[in-house]
């Protein structure tokens, strides 16, 4: 039931406009054009600002294209911009984000896909209850749960340290953040996979059972190969979501492991020194680049992903 809405969005409906320059059409395209300006303006401003030198910014207006194109702000944003005492630019945050992103995406999708599979094909007593809690949990503000999670992670780290004899810290480390992303990604991803696997013909599942495949056999040999598109959708959803996260990053990591968004905010909103708007905009663009690339590259799948998040189970 999830994807049906997204898939329908292919052919336009409604009466066909008759003349090209009818008043209706002028209104129609006029409105769309004005709206487009509102949506595109910030991107345009970001790009032109990031390509100007500071003197030009102080004299000119934000909308004028750069007279002298310079890539220096980009270099500076990537390699030299300062947060506090660190002056190695956004590159540090970028790599931190990558280190957070990869395990978070892999683990959250692995767990959620198995959950969704179990919920749709191997229902057991109480499974629907847990699922309902999970879905309603998605609406609980993170702020309500965040402090006890900090405590839990700290305690779990201590327990693990005691068990293994080595110092393990979950709080403040990348792995703590991975766990948090896995937990809070679970409702939407589980819903996504549950709905997908529920749409797989039940007879296919029965045939596999008659053929002697078990829980994991059916998952890996039958369902996984079939569900590749939905895995891509889940990946788009998670990569954008985790890359764009700020709240968890700021709470569950420490300055050395801050993800890119947190570092970006610290660079731009830093109160020390002269404001370098061009560097700030280059840094902002750099941070937005990853989700933007995914958005433009994935097209329909992105829409499908967010629409999947929209429709309740």
């Amino acid at each position: 039931m999830t994807d049906a809405t997204a898939n329908k969005g292919v052919t336009p409906r409604g009466a066909k406009p008759r003349r090209r320059l009818s008043p209706t059409n002028i209104m129609l395209y006029g409105t769309l054009f004005v709206a487009s300006v509102y949506y595109l303006l910030p991107l345009y401003v970001m790009i032109v600002t990031s390509l100007k030198g500071m003197p030009e910014i102080r004299l000119g207006n934000v909308f004028s294209p750069p007279v002298e194109v310079t890539f220096e702000p980009w270099v500076k944003a990537w390699a030299e911009a300062c947060t506090g005492i660190n002056c190695d630019g956004l590159s540090r945050g970028f790599w931190n984000s990558v280190q957070i992103l990869v395990p978070s995406v892999v683990i959250s999708i692995a767990i959620a896909s198995v959950n969704g599979y179990a919920l749709s094909l191997w229902k057991f007593k109480g499974s629907e209850v847990f699922f309902t809690i999970l879905i309603f949990g998605a609406f609980i503000p993170y702020q309500v749960m965040i402090y006890p999670i900090v405590i839990l992670l700290r305690e779990a780290g201590d327990v693990l340290s005691a068990m293994t004899g080595t110092k393990i810290r979950l709080m403040g480390s990348v792995w703590g953040l991975v766990i948090v992303h896995t937990i809070f990604g679970m409702p939407i991803l589980t819903l996504l996979f549950r709905n997908y696997f529920a749409s797989v013909p039940e007879e296919l599942f029965k045939a596999a059972r008659v053929d002697g495949a078990g829980f994991w056999g059916i998952y890996f040999r039958i369902m996984l190969p079939m569900a590749l598109p939905i895995f891509v959708v889940a990946m788009i959803l998670q990569v954008t979501g985790i890359w764009n996260d700020f709240l968890f990053g700021v709470i569950f990591t420490k300055p050395e492991t801050y993800p890119m968004t947190v570092q970006l905010n610290n660079i731009v909103n830093s109160v020390q020194g002269v404001k370098e708007y061009n560097v700030n905009m280059a840094a902002t663009l750099l941070t937005g680049l990853v989700p933007l690339i995914i958005y433009f590259a994935s097209g329909k799948l992105f829409v499908r992903g967010i629409a999947a998040g929209a429709v309740k189970g």
Binding site: Y39, P42, L43, T240, W243, N244, D245, F246, T261, V262, L264, N265, T284, T287, G288, P291, L292, I294, Y295, F296, F302, V303, I306
Partner: peptide
């Protein structure tokens, strides 16, 4: 739709 891909920070 593209702004929706961007973070609130950006």
């Amino acid at each position: 739709l593209y702004p929706f891909a961007l973070s609130f920070i950006v």
